[in-house]
Design a protein around this nucleic acid. Structure first.
Lengths: 227, 227
DNA sequence: TAGATTGTTAATCGATTAACAATC
DNA sequence: TAGATTGTTAATCGATTAACAATC
């Protein structure tokens, strides 16, 4: 049965992203060993929480000896399946779509946009590192490259139709930049990224913080802040 | 004291975004009155949770009569301070930055990017609806337009320096598209949007779901899904 | 009014935090 | 070894869910 789904990423998984970002930075600075309290200083997550998260994802260190930075990063790469290649397709080569298609280069090498699609035949002719196809070839390309995850960057009005098409081809995960709730079967993961909402939430917190002058009220507000 | 901060938006606030998206859609379809269970069908959030959230944000309906769609939307606009104008600046006019600057038009009228900045003098000359300034004019422009929130879309390497500059000018909220943890004072809200992480989390869930074939295991996985 | 739905209080569940035993 | 840090179990906290009294 199709329904509106808003998939929310587990907090612990989000923190793993945070740890990895911090660890990568520390590795560049030449750090080789860390303790849970060192990583805590860097990320703002409590040492207990860090160890709990590591435990959840089956990451172990050495009692007394802390954790090996390279080893930690390796284990996290595995969690994110970076040891395998992931072919992606991107639908919609408007402003955001073409920015994302170029973004590809900055992204870890295991993620690869193999094809982009647009209804506009003009955009299909624009020279680009990644080919731009007509939507009629969606199934063909997705099958050929065994694509499981798609990026939707089409206008609001077209998003549901594209999602339906993608699901018919067997796509199992969608990252959706269109500001609409997509109706999808329960076995399709949808991650909505709504840039407008993200901006508004900053405005919300900035404004509500500015209303209260005292440090105490500020503290109160920050209770809503998680790591 | 400066530290790494990763601000997480409250779940209840995220759900308010979800409700608004659904309500806006229903309004277009001509719906005028809804009940908590109607909205539940549309959003997948339980009626209890919806009423609890409404209560938290001071939104009331009519016992027996449900809620007026227009009234709900109005109240939510107030929550997001859409009744006021918000001037924004955007730093970094690369691929993503220029896409975001054009995105401006799709965004609610209360949010307005008044200026963009880039170190590249060439980009400063490109004709655009929104002027592109040199970074040397950051403080001048931010002061003039009373900007409180900035969008960072510069490369990883430059992000911290830009953040420092912005904070010196009195910026209180940052939406950061660079994949780095910014060190900021506690009274500055940072909302990190990491497109690579968002993609990886989809891959994570798709992959971990595919490993388990039985419906039961699938259900297990979905325990991590919140609305 | 009777019935249905809200708004809120109480119960449950899950996630975070604290504590500590295991151990390098 | 003694001391320090992990990994896990127990306690606490907060958020979600259920229940129900208020009321239109």
């Amino acid at each position: 049965m199709k329904r509106f789904t808003k998939h929310t990423v587990k907090n612990s998984l989000k923190r793993i992203f945070l740890y990895r970002a911090s660890l990568t930075r520390m590795k560049l600075l030449g750090v080789e060993k860390i303790y849970s309290y060192t990583l805590s200083d860097e990320t703002g997550v409590t040492p207990d929480q860090i160890r709990k998260d590591f435990s959840e994802f089956g990451i172990t260190g050495n009692k007394r000896g802390g954790y090996d930075v390279n080893d930690l990063i390796d284990k996290m790469e595995k969690i994110f399946h970076r040891n395998k290649d992931h072919n992606l397709v991107l639908i919609g080569m408007g402003n955001l779509g073409s920015a994302l298609s170029k973004y590809n280069k900055f992204v870890h090498k295991s993620m690869n946009i193999v094809a982009t699609f647009d209804i506009d035949p003009f955009k299909q002719k624009i020279r680009s590192d990644i080919p731009v196809y007509s939507l009629s070839r969606l199934k063909e390309i997705i099958d050929r490259f065994k694509v499981k995850v798609a990026i939707i960057a089409v206008p609001e009005i077209a998003a549901q139709e594209i999602a339906d098409d993608l699901i018919k081809t067997g796509i199992k995960g969608i990252i959706n930049f269109a500001p609409v709730l997509l109706k999808t079967p329960a076995d399709v993961i949808v991650n909505n990224v709504n840039l407008c909402d993200e901006l508004e939430s900053v405005i919300y917190y900035v404004h509500n913080q500015m209303k209260s002058d005292s440090a105490k009220n500020l503290e109160q507000l920050y209770k809503g802040t998680k790591y």
